[in-house]
Simulated assay, not measured.
Amino acid sequence: MPQEIELKLAVPDTALAPLAAWLDANGEAQGEAILLNVYLDTPERDLAQARAALRLRRKGAQWLQTLKTAGSSQAGLATRHEWETEIAGEAIDLQRFPAEAQAVLAPMIGRLAPVFRTDFVRRTWLVSQDGARIEAALDTGTITAPGNTAQEPIQELELEWLDGDAAHAADALRAFAARLAGIATLAPSDLSKAARGYRLAGIAEGKPS
């Protein structure tokens, strides 16, 4: 089962430029992309209650569907299961998911509808730490929800373990974050973009946040 291990750090305004400059000097730049994302759920919020998130993402001409299921998050370090596949357009294609993901979505597939959006610019670098290969992704953008004129800013750095010794992935991510602490003040964040989106959508719908 695919597993995502990442460390999320909130980035203040004053840290954006020095952080990007340091990563340019010490990492392998992978470029910049505009990512347009819509998250779906049932009216009863079945996925949210199961601590799962279903996303459609447009990256240039490419469409991706992603399902992330329950995991753990502590001091910004998150571990969870993730399935992602390419699709033809802006609609969930259940058959493109592996069997494990299909089993989660099949009972609710006819009741899924958009709940909120996260749209942002992502700059990425590949970096190394203690034998681990890590993707550093700097995201800046907004979270929006239907019926709510308010927006939440996205301004965060995601450090995702790509390969190396999986048993020490968390240690490698924390060690790299410690190096960045000398460049800027970055606070660990346990709230995913999905969690923040559900909170914003709940306010719009008059539900407890």
Rank of each mutant, 00 (worst) to 15 (best):
W161C: 00
E4Y: 03
V115K: 00
E100K: 09
R196E: 01
A178V: 13
E100H: 14
F176D: 09
Q155I: 02
E44T: 08
P98H: 04
L64E: 09
Y198W: 09
D24W: 14
Q65G: 00
T69I: 08
A99P: 12
E82A: 07
K8E: 03
E32F: 01
E158R: 08
A145V: 12
T42Q: 09
T185G: 05
A78L: 08
L64W: 07
P18R: 04
K59Y: 12
E84V: 06
P208M: 10
I154R: 00
P146K: 14
L9M: 04
A136Q: 01
A103D: 13
A167R: 10
L126G: 11
R123M: 03
D93F: 04
E160R: 04
L64T: 09
K59W: 12
I183S: 10
A91W: 06
A10Y: 03
K207Q: 09
I87Q: 13
N148L: 05
E90D: 14
D130G: 11
D130W: 11
I143Q: 12
G89Q: 13
T144V: 13
A167G: 05
E28Q: 11
Y198T: 09
T118M: 09
K8T: 04
A17C: 01
A194Y: 11
L40C: 06
R174L: 07
A194V: 02
Q102W: 10
F176V: 05
D119M: 14
Q74M: 03
A184H: 02
E32V: 05
F97S: 00
M1D: 11
A78K: 01
E4R: 05
W63R: 02
T149Q: 14
L200N: 02
G71D: 02
W161R: 00
A48G: 12
A181Q: 14
A88R: 08
A113W: 07
F116M: 08
L67G: 00
E28T: 14
E156W: 01
E205H: 05
L67Y: 01
L54C: 06
T185R: 14
V115M: 04
L77P: 02
A75E: 14
E4M: 13
A21W: 10
L112E: 07
Q155S: 13
H81V: 07
M108P: 00
R117Q: 07
E28W: 03
A88T: 15
P2W: 10
T42S: 11
W125D: 00
T42V: 10
A17Y: 02
Q95Y: 07
Q3K: 12
P114V: 06
M1C: 05
R122V: 07
D119P: 13
L19Q: 09
A195N: 15
L56F: 13
M1G: 07
A201C: 09
I143L: 15
S72M: 08
A50H: 04
A187T: 14
D165Y: 00
T140G: 08
R55N: 14
L180T: 11
T69N: 02
T149L: 15
V115I: 08
S192L: 05
H81M: 10
A78T: 09
V127L: 12
I5Q: 08
P188Y: 05
D139A: 06
P114R: 10
